[in-house]
Amino acid sequence: MNQSVKGVLQRLQKKHDFAIVALTGMINNRGNSTFKWKYVLGSDSQRWKRMELRKGTGLPGVVLKTGKSLVVQDVSKIYNPEELFRFPILYFENIQGFVAIPIWNNDEVVMGLVVLGDRAPRHISEAEYEALKADVEKDLRIELLKELMLYENT
């Protein structure tokens, strides 16, 4: 079943033409306050596997806090290099433009976060974003919920 979440990510990456796609592991409200990146497609480094994410910090922190998507077309215009270092995934993967979308479970709690990025600034139109968001809702969210149910039953 992991294969299918990965499969959805691959489809998203291809369809919307992003160089890099990153998905966090399941974020629980109870228990652990840290989580990790579960899949990063298109990375040429192993760093993300060791990174531990924290609810209040980094790019996931920003998205989790607001519960809203974040669209940045040109990273260098928003963050200077020093600030960028606070977002290791952007810094190390050299992401210059990206969309970060929170994924909600049925209890209206954010259970994860997907980031789709490019290594060059990227213009993302309203229509493009809506299409992407719809795909995340329709495919990725459903697939993740399935996975969640499987975990709960074991």
Partner: peptide, 8 residues
């Protein structure tokens, strides 16, 4: 450092 940036 390892947790934050994935550096060994």
């Amino acid at each position: 450092l390892q947790k934050q940036y994935g550096i060994l």
